[in-house]
């Protein structure tokens, strides 16, 4: 077994090359071998062609993650295996896949945390398949375009002075690495195929970070209710469970947004208060509060 570490050129992904190019594998040494082998079942195939699972026996290495095993297969047995990856540090969000049916980052899933037995690796189910473990996630970027960006009041002069208490909760939203595991696991996309009418957890997080921003003046509540399909979410928290950045997507983004939509459409007391104050918009509410 090769004991060489990956060369710098291997660590720099080339456009498109990460899909199928074999890489120099995990940085293993002989002393790191556990003496056991992993039965790795990897999905192979592409639309219009033959599809199924290829079984590989991979020597296990101490601390091995699933992406290491996939790289071992690419290097030793199947150089044509397509797998999207980049940083191998849980920060780029590229190597999203489903391991034993659970949506995970392959680079953060240690083999020794998995139950004994064959390890099955397959692409994300909610997105169209391109090849092997690679899916087409471009619809997420189309969804992103539907969200009005951050907009400050035109007369809100700079430089801004923002108090820490006003932005503390936004840091969590900004941790998102756009791995789209939450979009994959959400049953609204996965089982009901409603992605055309449903922003999905990742974009609710983005809207939450905009809506809670002290300097943003836009009101996206109607967008959330209508085009965003916020009502389709039934709070089953799978998005929070799979998030590799441990963002409390449901508690700190979706539920606060649902409450804000309820403020606008389900709360007659607030409706009366808005009428009395004459503040029907978010900007007006902010002005009234100040």
């Amino acid at each position: 077994m090769a004991g060489a570490l990956p060369q710098p050129s291997d660590a720099v992904p080339q456009p498109g090359a990460g899909l199928s190019a074999p890489v120099d594998g995990p940085p293993t040494t002989e002393s790191g071998l556990t003496g056991e082998t992993i039965t790795l079942r990897v999905f192979k195939g592409q639309p219009g062609g033959e599809m199924g699972y290829a079984t590989h026996q991979v020597p296990e290495v101490t601390g091995m993650v699933v992406l290491d095993a996939v790289h071992w297969v690419q290097r030793n047995e199947d150089s044509d295996l397509a797998c999207r990856w980049n940083c191998k540090a849980g920060k780029c969000g590229s190597c999203s896949a489903e391991v034993n049916g659970h949506p995970v980052l392959m680079c953060k899933t240690r083999i020794d945390t998995l139950p004994r037995g064959p390890v099955t690796v397959q692409p994300m189910k909610s997105f169209p398949l391109i090849k092997d473990l690679v899916t087409d996630i471009s619809r997420n970027y189309e969804t992103n375009k539907l969200i009005p960006p951050f907009t400050a009041a035109p007369d809100d002069g700079t430089p801004w002075r923002i108090q820490q208490m006003d932005i503390d909760r936004l840091y969590e939203h900004r941790r998102c690495i756009e791995c789209f595991l939450c979009q994959d696991v959400c049953h609204v996309n996965r089982s009901h195929d409603l992605s055309a009418r449903f922003f999905g957890p990742r974009f609710f997080v983005r809207v939450a970070s905009l809506e809670m921003h002290p300097k943003d003046i836009l009101d996206r509540r109607d967008l959330l209710r209508d085009q965003g399909g916020l009502g389709y979410c039934n709070i089953t928290k799978c998005c929070s469970e799979v998030c590799p950045e441990h963002i409390h997507i449901t508690d700190n983004a979706i539920i606060p947004l649902k409450e804000r939509v309820a403020d606008a459409h389900w709360d007659p007391l607030r409706w009366v208060a808005r009428k009395l104050r004459g503040s029907g918009t978010k900007a007006g509410e902010k002005a009234a509060a100040e």
Binding site: S31, G35, K44, G45, G52, A54, T55, V58, N76, E77
Partner: peptide, 19 residues
């Protein structure tokens, strides 16, 4: 699809304490 089989190398018998 054909099953790809692989016989692990003999050095796989080595086990480190960390492992």
């Amino acid at each position: 699809m054909a099953q790809i089989r692989y016989d692990p190398p003999s050095m796989a018998a080595q086990v480190s304490p960390v492992a």
